[in-house]
Nucleic acid binder design. Structure first.
Length: 348
DNA sequence: GTTGAGCGTT
């Protein structure tokens, strides 16, 4: 009978597309018209911000995988919409797993990685805690997929890098161009084996006041300590969440994490060959470097010779300015200043 | 070449 003929529709993930690089003014109807020729459209949604403005992307769901694939084949990269910065993107939408990863990425950026334990559960305690527990569950689920063994090993190697050394300073390549999800700078870098600091190219990298302190003291941090110092015990969801964050942060040492006001430095006149790793090394002696980013020309992949370093406290930032501003490298002198606040000189 | 890009996943 007919009731037995009911066929379950194909899983949504197999026929749902993410469409990127739309014009900001394109409507749902515009998108429908574009995608109609390839099949029956079941759903078409433009992603919009809170103000209703298009984010320039959309989801389009077809009745079948084949239709979706056909749309990808014909439309992806086929044209550049007015106002879009590059050609149309048509691909299968993220799976749940991929979305979880994306969220971790966002969350890491928002929370930063300063002393997770200091997160206040005060006024918003219940709410915050609920969120954290929810995230903890997500992260616990994602742990296996987030860090492959190689990434974990690379992160460990990173932590063992001793302060300044030749291979770390001049031989390490700049962050490879994008296209993989490999954390920048740590995937292929060998563990530097030369421990003696040697001036290169007129650069005498002897950081002020490392006196006697084992380098590992500075290295380990990034605000991260491998273990909470005491109870190796248990998996309460919160601890799991923290663990997740720590693993994540260790795997993405140069991800953009701005520190509090007064903790972020702008550095100019960097040597051309300096990448994120070298910048990090250079400023590690002054405190916990929570991020270090050299700006790279997208087209040429060349350093633009400026970058940013963020500490977790203003004192470290000031110490770094004191010691490194005007520091001579080759024919140039470093400029090291506090970064301009993003909303500077906004008239009000 | 002078201050945190881009690509945006309900």
């Amino acid at each position: 009978p007919d009731s037995k003929r009911v066929i379950k529709p194909a899983a949504s993930w197999s026929r749902k597309l993410f469409v990127g690089m739309l014009g900001k003014q394109q409507s749902e109807d515009d998108v429908r018209r574009l995608f109609e020729p390839f099949g029956q459209i079941e759903e078409c949604t433009i992603l919009r911000g809170p103000d209703g403005a298009s984010k320039g992307c959309a989801f389009v769901k077809y009745g079948s995988h084949a239709e979706a694939q056909a749309a990808i084949n014909s439309l992806h990269g086929s044209q550049t919409m007015p106002g879009a910065s590059s050609s149309l993107v048509v691909k299968f939408a993220d799976t749940d797993k991929e979305r979880t990863l994306r969220r971790m990425h966002q969350m890491a950026g928002q929370l930063g990685i300063f002393n997770p334990m200091t997160i206040q559960f005060g006024a918003y305690g219940a709410y915050t805690q609920a969120i954290m527990q929810q995230q903890a569950a997500l992260m616990a689920a994602a742990q296996g997929t987030c860090l492959n063994p190689m990434a974990a090993i690379a992160a460990a190697q990173m932590q063992q890098m001793a302060a300044f050394n030749v291979s770390g300073l001049v031989a390490a390549p700049l962050t490879p161009s994008s296209g993989t999800s490999t954390p920048p700078g740590i995937s292929t870098a060998p563990v530097p084996s030369i421990a003696t600091p040697i001036g290169v190219n007129g650069f005498s990298p002897l950081p002020p006041q490392t006196n006697g302190q084992p380098a590992s003291e500075t290295i380990y941090t990034n605000g991260i300590h491998p273990y909470p110092a005491q109870s190796p015990t248990v998996a309460d969801p919160l601890q799991q969440a923290y663990a997740g964050m720590q693993h994540y942060a260790a795997a993405y040492p140069t991800a953009y994490r701005e520190g509090p006001e007064g903790c972020n430095l702008f550095i100019y006149h960097l040597p051309q060959e300096f990448g994120d790793a070298e910048l990090t090394q250079m400023f590690l002696p002054f405190g916990n470097v929570i991020s270090a980013k050299v700006f790279v020309d997208r087209a040429t992949n060349q350093s633009k010779c400026f970058g940013f370093v963020s500490f977790d406290n203003p004192t470290s930032a000031q110490a770094a300015i004191q010691a490194m501003n005007g520091f001579q490298i080759g024919m140039k002198r470093l400029k090291v200043q506090l970064k301009r606040p993003k909303d500077a000189n906004r008239p009000y």
